[in-house]
């Protein structure tokens, strides 16, 4: 039966998940534990305000400003919060810098811990079992799935995130970007390059 009867348009239906969420929201609101307006504000923040552009600004600044880069290396939590990006779970941040011989890759094997304040919410693959289970045991194979093939001599370091410690990869600055402003540089920094499943774009590719 593929068609609804036109004269019997259906009533509202709530799927079981939506009904459970409403039930929880009702209970938690009655108990004064959540405020529906605060819920809306949180959704809005994560849907529209927080995203990988924040991280891209951090990386672009690190590329342009050696002093900031040093700070980011020593105390990423403080350096990042100086740009106005602070985590709300009290988590610490660590910046891991790619070099000509080491590539960094971030995963959360436990669940899906991710540096929300600088990257927004994680992409689907980051939360999915194939990535979470394979990144540690076969990082090179995982990177190949992203069409990222590194020289055999490049060492790959895998960082497993936790609730308390989240990682931001600082990719290598692409060649041919001398004299670029921070804004121009930020355009080259992709989300994947800050997780380690990609590289920063070259000016030609951007």
């Amino acid at each position: 039966m593929a068609h609804d009867h036109p004269e019997h348009h259906h009533d509202n239906e709530l799927d079981p998940m939506a009904a459970r969420v409403r039930a929880l929201e009702t209970i938690l609101t009655e108990k004064g534990l959540v405020d529906p307006k605060a819920i809306d504000a949180i959704v809005d923040t994560y849907e529209t305000k927080v995203g990988p552009r924040n991280g891209a600004r951090v990386v672009a600044k690190a590329w342009s400003d050696p002093e900031f880069s040093g700070w980011l290396q020593r105390d990423a939590t403080e350096a990042i919060s100086s740009l106005g990006y602070t985590g709300r779970q009290g988590e610490h941040m660590q910046a891991v810098f790619n070099t000509s011989d080491t590539h960094n890759l971030v995963v959360c094997t436990l669940c899906s811990c991710y540096p929300w304040s600088v990257l927004g919410l994680p992409p689907v693959w980051y939360k999915a079992p194939p990535y979470r289970s394979r990144a540690v045991i076969d990082p090179r194979g995982v990177l190949a799935e992203f069409d990222l093939v590194l020289p055999e001599t490049t060492k790959i370091r895998v960082w497993d995130s936790t609730a308390e410690l989240r990682y931001l990869v600082v990719p290598l600055r692409p060649a041919g970007t001398e004299g670029f402003s921070e804004e121009q540089l930020a355009e080259l920094v992709t989300r994947d390059s800050m997780i380690g499943t990609g590289l920063a774009l070259t000016p030609e590719a951007a």
């Binding site: 969420v21 929880l24 929201e25 959704v43 994560y46 849907e47 709300r88 919410l121 689907v124 989300r191």
Partner: peptide
């Protein structure tokens, strides 16, 4: 911008936000 939308259905966004709020 980075690919897929954060939430596919509204209840997911609400469940997400409730956890953040309760924390």
């Amino acid at each position: 911008q980075g690919g897929s939308p954060a939430f596919v259905e509204p209840w997911q966004a609400e469940a997400f936000a409730m956890v953040v709020a309760l924390h």
